[in-house]
């Protein structure tokens, strides 16, 4: 892939396999073969500086694995990740604000940790001044730095996670379901804060979520994943106006819509197959209303001549895009 002028992150043919075989002795006695789970199976995307790319998909589609690969928590099994920035300025916000904060540390120490690690020479007064400033930035009070995480609600804890991520002056934030554990009214506070911070500080987000309405609000570009692959990637407005992949269309058809409830709809049939033994060809073909013979044997790729690399689907290549 040619280098795009303003991309901060480029991911090419990224793969991550996990060995999910039975233990050695069981394999020997029961004659079971080794089994591999292809959590991420040939994924390409690029994120422009200052933008938000969202990965959406159902559980097990590999979106969180990509977050861990990008942050370096897992090494990739294949392909490459090019980060055109300072690796120290890449931070992550996790889903569960109850598990991601050390319950025995005061909040001030939690927020100061990236500073102490990345810039150990910073004088103590400067560190505490910076912690106070960060607490204010995320809408908390400097006095909150003396409290423990259990004294805060879920939304406040997620603000603390954001303050900690901001401590290292990041340019790139990986956000793995940052609001899934929060109630909607609190979710709105956190999403608004994240948008404001992006505007003020020029942050770039890799935003992972299963919630299409949240993603529509946050992202510039959306990549829809199914069983470890990106099946469709489009700017947000285009994706909602003109979804190209049958899976995206069915997903949009399926999500509950407050403004126009589809009370008598017929939901998408079937379930996501196991990623240990994915279907042949296009992994969506068993559930796809547009599938034909080729889909069962050959895996579709995103190609430049088909909607400008936006979709991996043989039916879409032939101009068939309506599942209804």
């Amino acid at each position: 892939m040619n280098i795009r002028p303003n991309a901060i992150l480029e991911v090419d043919a990224l793969e991550r396999r996990f060995d999910v075989s039975a233990p050695w002795l069981n394999r020997l006695i029961e004659r079971k073969p080794r089994r591999t789970l292809r959590a991420v199976d040939g994924v390409d995307f690029a994120i422009q500086r200052g933008q938000t790319l969202a990965l959406v998909g159902e559980s097990g589609c590999g979106k969180s694995t990509i977050a861990k690969l990008v942050t370096g928590l897992h090494p990739p099994s294949g392909g490459n990740i090019r980060f055109h920035g300072d690796r120290d300025r890449l931070q992550m916000i996790f889903q569960d604000p109850f598990a991601s904060l050390n319950p025995r540390w005061r909040v001030g120490r939690i927020i100061a940790e990236p500073l102490r690690t990345l810039r150990p020479d910073t004088p103590t007064e400067q560190v505490s001044a910076r912690v106070d400033e960060l607490l204010r930035t995320v809408g908390l009070a400097p006095a909150d730095g003396l409290k423990f995480p259990h004294e805060f609600s879920g939304g406040q804890r997620q603000r603390i996670s954001i303050a900690r991520a901001l401590a290292g002056e990041p340019e790139f934030l990986v956000c793995d379901e940052p609001t899934s554990a929060l109630d909607v009214s609190v979710q709105a506070q956190v999403l608004n804060l994240m948008k404001k911070l992006q505007k003020d500080m020029g942050l770039t987000y890799l935003f992972i979520s299963h919630d299409l309405s949240v993603v529509r609000h946050m992202a510039d570009v959306i990549a829809v994943m199914y069983l470890g692959r990106i099946v469709e990637i489009q700017p947000t407005a285009d994706l909602f106006a003109n979804p190209l992949h049958p899976y995206t269309q069915l997903l949009l058809e399926t999500i509950p819509d407050l403004e126009a409830p589809k009370r008598d709809r017929s939901p998408m049939g079937g379930e996501v197959p196991s990623p240990v033994s994915p279907p042949s060809g296009c992994s969506f073909h068993p559930r796809c209303p547009l599938a034909f013979d080729r889909c069962k044997v050959e895996r579709p790729q995103r190609r430049p001549e088909v909607h400008d690399r936006r979709v991996a689907c043989f039916a879409a290549e032939q101009g068939k895009t309506d599942v209804q």
Binding site: G155, D183, S185, A188, H217, D257
Partner: peptide
């Protein structure tokens, strides 16, 4: 009404979601 306004819409573009300050 605050609860309804804080849910991101699938149809409308809003610059900022409506917020209910504080928590329950």
């Amino acid at each position: 009404s605050g609860l309804m306004g804080s849910i991101p819409s699938l149809r409308k573009d809003v610059a900022e979601l409506q917020m209910i300050p504080g928590s329950m």
